[in-house]
Amino acid sequence: MIERLLEPFQFAFMVEAMAAGAFVATVCAVLSCYLVLKGWSLMGDAISHAVLPGIVIAYALGAPLALGAFSSGLLCAVATGYIKAHTRVKEDTVMGVVFTGLFAFGLVLFTRIKSDLHLDHILFGNILGIERGDLIEIFAVGGVTLAIVLALRRDLLLFCFDPGHARSIGLRTNLLYYLLLALLAATIVASLKAVGIILVIAMLVTPGCVGFLLADRFGTMLAISTGSAVFSALTGVYVSFFVNGSTAACIVLAQTLLFIAALLFAPKRGLLRSRRTDGQPTPVG
């Protein structure tokens, strides 16, 4: 019995998958806290879809796929911002049009250009088949992203919370806006090989949401979010070994279960909790 349970750890590809999964989960979880607070959850969705044509074009040109992915993801975000500022159409609408358009363009390109890329690896990741080179890329891109976010975490938080104040103390909020977009695109690029461009959307929203439901302070939110994401990654990879299912999907499923648990049982804001106490007492004075 014990032997059977420890079996996954005997395979190098399983251990590597767990390492890559946990690392990608950490980077995504940290960023997801900012996205959830800024109200940018859809932005992760948009950028990750828009990455597809970049990958295909980079392949055709013989350029690094990560570079192509990063550029086209960022292009989508910038185009969305530009169209929103210069027309009367609302941001979420623009985003919906731009990212699905780019995604469709990517699909057409993919079928036209002969390649050894697998579409379902791009869409859903291939964490069990990760090669040494991919692993280095994941840790390099993800590591730099994580370092920048953590170094600037207070400025980024202030930018999300009160851009007016950020401006009034002389912070360059425009710069922070594009920086956050670039960090998001980089995170998606780092997660590409592991979980793919569809499932990364969940990795960029769910952990932050779990943290938000459970925490009253940003530091705690960050810790809970990261903890839940890493736990889900390890559990997901482990379980997928036995159920022989899509590994990335198992990771996302584990995160979703944690989200449901938080939604129901969060001590202050859980659905079950608020029914019992009929909401928080309103302060006076």
Binding site: D155, C160, F161, I169, F212, R217, F218, M221
Partner: peptide, 16 residues
């Protein structure tokens, strides 16, 4: 609903 305390907000005044 932002997860910041009164203290955190006042501290933001000192960031500069």
């Amino acid at each position: 609903t932002f997860p910041v305390s009164v203290w955190d907000v006042v501290m933001m005044g000192r960031y500069g």
